[in-house]
Nucleic acid binder design. Structure first.
Length: 800
DNA sequence: CTGTCCCGCCAGCTG
DNA sequence: CAGCTGGCGGGACAG
């Protein structure tokens, strides 16, 4: 064993030693060490029982004091030889063989942060041998680790261990992709549907929705890679099905985009399967998916990224997992103009769609873009470029090409980092405001952007930002937190998605338009949001649903609300997240963007390291373009409750009418805004104001300047992250994410609203505590329920 | 009974 | 073509 170990070390220290060569299969090594008087007997038993060998192995590990505490504990408790029960030896508990424990043992073999100078190679056979498990099991672990870029496959039978060095970047990348994928919306969709299902036995009504929901099944997204982490072995690249890897990434994405970072297996499975077909969801397929998710969850749990919890709803207790990993911040390495940031926050990030820029903003945008380019192109924090990436330029190029090809082919969204294409994802360059969108929207009324949201193209509807026609203007209304609170209980965050219809200019089919895409902000499993969603949907999309149906729905919601009102409200704080999200429609955002491959949205580091050119290319204007003065920002406050009216359901007029919210919002939040939104001018003004939402966090505070703009143009804003971003600014590139709740670090805004907001959102409890609000919840783009009053479902999360 | 998830068959891909 | 990978789901174990 010593010999083996030293050999391994040697290998690790010498990365050059044929990294791409498949290591020879280790010879059968018999654990013949006579450690105990009964060793002979043990050996015999072991020959017949792999479990025994496994125990020996474990014991060895513990002796080395190298074992993970948990695993160790487990072993000690169950050490067979600690007892005399021979029988016991032959009856290893199933738990002793769990993937989670195996993973712990596996992880114990490697340092979290291995020296970057050397490679830590992993020989599959050796590991399987040492851990006494079949190779098959090791694959399960490696696949998940690979999805997080903690390991990468070098060749057959050989992997490289990277530890957690790339974890942070990977998570950021995953979060971004998850946002682009509109997972938040999908989650809401599913919850909503479930909710409706409860009351809708006939299922009639759901059918339409279900259909709309994931119609785009080909949403399969490709494996998300990090620069320098591309698959090294060319052969591996061709492997089409990386299912477990991809599933793992998607699963992680769900956590990262969820506000309470809790994801139930059921929801995850549905999303991973492809939201469509919910109605006739194949039972066995679902079951299989769940099984796979358990495999993944076990590994992620061993990595301490997630933890099992149970979500209790009206219908019962459901298994779920809570993210306990590091807080993933949006990339903040690039400094960006605060104005931009503000505006950016306005738009929830969900989708990457094409946006049309309002003509009046074009100039501004251009100048801003130029500035940004300058800034971005400046050297940023040094990135350590992995030696590998440098060494495999051609591979990268190749990969890039492949990626693009895939994209074109499937129109799937591919997220490739590195120097490769940033742009991939967005083929859309878009100049075309999406006329089609309207159509599409109508056809697919539901919020639904199919899973495939990522699909570059087209029309997909991207909920996130609604396309605005140049003529249409929508506005955002901010609700003063305190007022909102008064009206209803605090409700976490809400966002209205503005519908085009709201346009003052009068737009045509507004209703039909994208509006539909109402998404709820992830609420987490809870479904509280469902209610809201439902209501909104109903109301909002009359076009789609029959009035009757809508009404019924609405009534139901109301009833439901009432019944649960108290309870829910009480839990508001806990459930915050469940609110609906509306997309602010505010400005027209330019789509343009990166058509070329900029990698949008990538970390600066990466950019800097891999392709400095990107900056240049990158231009997409993010929503940020809207000019806001510091004073404006100050004036507007609010993040917490800002509603963008859009309308879906409201006609322009109605919007104006929208009463309570508007007035209160306006009044409290901004003096400058006129109370009566009906006028187009006013609307416009409001919009501008609305842009500021992010501003809350960003006020003239210098810190903002460090904030980074999302690289992806489309994503102009990450809706759910607005707040988070605000919180982030205090952080320096070097610092790692802080717990959400550590928000105090955020500079406080002098404004009253801000204060209020903070109070609302900030709850004791730590980042991981379910009850505490997540950064997202306090964010700016949310609205309190205010008049809308959306009930939240009862949700309880219990940790086992 | 439900929730978990071990286990290993076997198809597809790789070298 | 042997061996590597890893999808898949039967069915056993845990609570």
């Amino acid at each position: 064993k010593q010999a083996t170990t030293s050999h391994l070390v040697l290998t690790e220290i010498q990365p050059d030693c044929q990294p791409l060569t498949t290591p020879p299969k280790p010879k059968e090594i018999l654990p013949a060490d006579p450690w105990t008087p009964t060793s002979n007997l043990k050996m015999l038993i072991s020959a017949a029982s792999p479990e025994i060998r496994s125990r020996e192995q474990r014991r060895e590990l513990s002796n080395n004091a190298n074992v993970v505490l948990q695993a160790k504990h487990c072993l000690q408790v169950r050490e067979p030889w600690a007892f005399d029960n021979e029988y016991e030896k032959t009856q290893p508990s199933r738990k002793d063989k769990s993937l989670g424990l195996l993973c712990h043992k596996f992880l114990a073999r490697y340092p979290d942060y291995p020296s970057t100078a050397e490679y830590n190679y992993i020989c599959l056979d050796e590991v399987a041998e040492e851990l006494n498990v079949e190779r098959r099991r090791i694959y399960d672990i490696l696949n998940v680790l690979e999805s997080l870029h903690m390991v990468s496959r070098l060749a057959k039978n050989r992997y490289a261990w990277h530890g957690r060095h790339n974890l942070s970047k990977t998570l950021q990348a995953l979060k971004k992709v998850g946002e682009e994928n509109k997972y938040t919306q999908q989650i809401q969709m599913i919850k909503k549907r479930e909710y409706e299902h409860e009351f809708d036995l006939d299922g009639e009504r759901n059918k339409g929705m279900a259909r709309s929901f994931g119609s785009n099944e080909n949403s399969e997204m490709s494996f998300v890679e990090l620069p320098g982490m591309e698959f090294r072995a060319a052969s591996v690249n061709s492997r089409k099905d990386k299912s477990l890897r991809v599933m793992s990434q998607k699963f992680v994405m769900l956590f990262l985009v969820s506000t309470p970072q809790i994801v139930s297996l059921e929801v995850a499975a549905k999303i991973l399967i492809g939201e469509d077909k919910l109605e006739d969801l194949d039972k066995s397929k679902f079951k299989t998916k769940i099984r796979r998710l358990y495999d993944i969850a076990n590994v992620l749990s061993s990595l301490e990224l997630i933890k099992k919890v149970h979500v209790t709803e009206e219908r019962g207790r459901k298994p779920a997992f809570k993210w306990t990993g590091p807080e993933v911040l949006p990339s903040i390495q690039e400094p960006i103009p605060s104005k931009e940031q503000c505006s950016k926050n306005l738009f929830p990030s969900r989708g990457k769609q094409n946006f049309t820029r309002h003509p009046s903003l074009i100039k501004l945008v251009k100048s801003i873009e130029n500035d940004r380019r300058k800034i971005q192109s400046a050297p940023t924090s040094p990135v350590k470029i992995s030696a590998n990436s440098a060494a495999f330029p051609s591979e990268i190029a190749q990969l890039s090409a492949i990626t693009k090809h895939k994209l074109e082919e499937q129109s799937n969204f591919l997220f490739v980092t590195g120097s490769l294409e940033c742009g991939l994802s967005l083929p859309e360059i878009a100049p075309e405001p999406e006329p089609p969108r309207t159509t599409a929207a109508m056809q697919q009324p539901a919020l639904t952007q199919p899973v495939s949201a990522c699909a570059p193209s087209h029309g997909s509807v991207s909920p996130v930002i609604l396309p605005h026609t140049p003529s249409g203007v929508s506005y955002t209304i901010y609700l003063h937190p305190s007022q909102a609170h008064t009206v209803t209980t605090y409700s976490p965050s809400f966002m209205f998605q503005p519908l085009p219809g709201a346009n003052v200019t009068g737009i045509k089919s507004i209703n039909s338009q994208v509006l539909n895409k109402i998404t709820t902000e992830e609420g987490d499993n809870q479904i509280a949001t469902d209610d809201v969603t439902k209501t909104l949907t109903t109301t909002g999309r009359p076009t789609i649903k029959s009035e009757t149906a809508s009404q019924q729905c609405f009534k139901r919601s109301q009833t439901l609300q009432e019944s649960h009102l108290i309870k829910r409200y009480r839990r508001d704080e806990e459930n915050l997240d469940t609110s609906l999200t509306f997309f602010p429609s505010g400005y027209l955002i330019p789509l343009t963007q990166c058509a070329h491959g900029n990698k949008a949205g990538f970390l600066n580091e990466e950019k800097a390291g891999t392709c400095s050119l990107q900056h240049t290319t990158y231009s997409s204007p993010v929503a940020g373009v809207i000019p806001v003065t510091a004073s404006e920002l100050k004036a507007v406050n609010i993040p917490a409750f800002h509603i963008t009216p859009l309308n879906i359901m409201l006609s322009p007029t109605s919007i104006a009418a929208a009463p309570v919210l508007s007035n209160s919002c306006l009044n409290s939040s901004n003096n400058s805004s006129a109370p009566n939104p009906s006028s187009s001018v006013l609307n416009f003004t409001l919009q501008h104001i609305g842009l500021i939402p992010a501003g809350v966090q960003v006020p003239a505070h210098p810190v903002l300047q460090h904030m980074v703009v999302p690289s992806q143009p489309e994503n102009v804003s990450h809706s759910s992250e607005n707040l988070q971003e605000g919180k982030h600014y205090p952080e320096r590139p070097g610092s790692k994410g802080q717990p959400k709740c550590s928000a105090p670090s955020v500079p406080k805004e002098p404004q009253e609203p801000q204060t209020v907001t903070e109070n609302f959102f900030r709850t004791p409890g730590g980042p991981n505590s379910v009850s505490s609000l997540s950064a997202n919840s306090d964010g700016a783009d949310r609205i309190s329920q205010g008049t809308l009053y959306i009930p939240q479902r009862k949700l309880e999360v219990s940790e086992d």
